[in-house]
Amino acid sequence: MIRKENAQPSTPDGGRPTSDIEPKLKVVFVGHVDHGKSTLIGRILHDTDSLSEGKIEQVKKACAAEGMEFEFAFLLDALLEEQKQNVTIDTTEIPFRTTRRQYAIIDAPGHKEFLKNMITGASRADAAILVISADEGCANRADVTPTC
């Protein structure tokens, strides 16, 4: 997991991070539907201070329109249909950076119906994080995804 002290954005006096020249690491988040992939990513972006002001405002407005509490997943689930059904339809890629290096986080849908979109995201990735809900344990997507 990302340690907070490494996760500060660089500052003008902090000099340029070495990540400028280092190739970007692409990490895909996969797992069963509703196990919290988009939520985990939203949380990482928030805790590493990677979100712009406008972005959080936009998400707050969308949540209010859907009558929901603040939902981190809406940072990635930007399509109206995704927000209304609270499900990731298509894969999204969001750049983010620590002082050590730059990353792209790829969020991939967990729903069986959107398998092709999951693989589209996963095929671009250098590394993967498999998310499994502690409550539900291994569900069918968790069995399938590692073999893809």
Binding site: L76, L79, P95
Partner: peptide, 12 residues
């Protein structure tokens, strides 16, 4: 570019 807008982030 993907980072401009969240719907562009979902593009091919």
């Amino acid at each position: 570019r993907r980072d401009e807008d969240p719907t562009r982030a979902k593009e091919r």
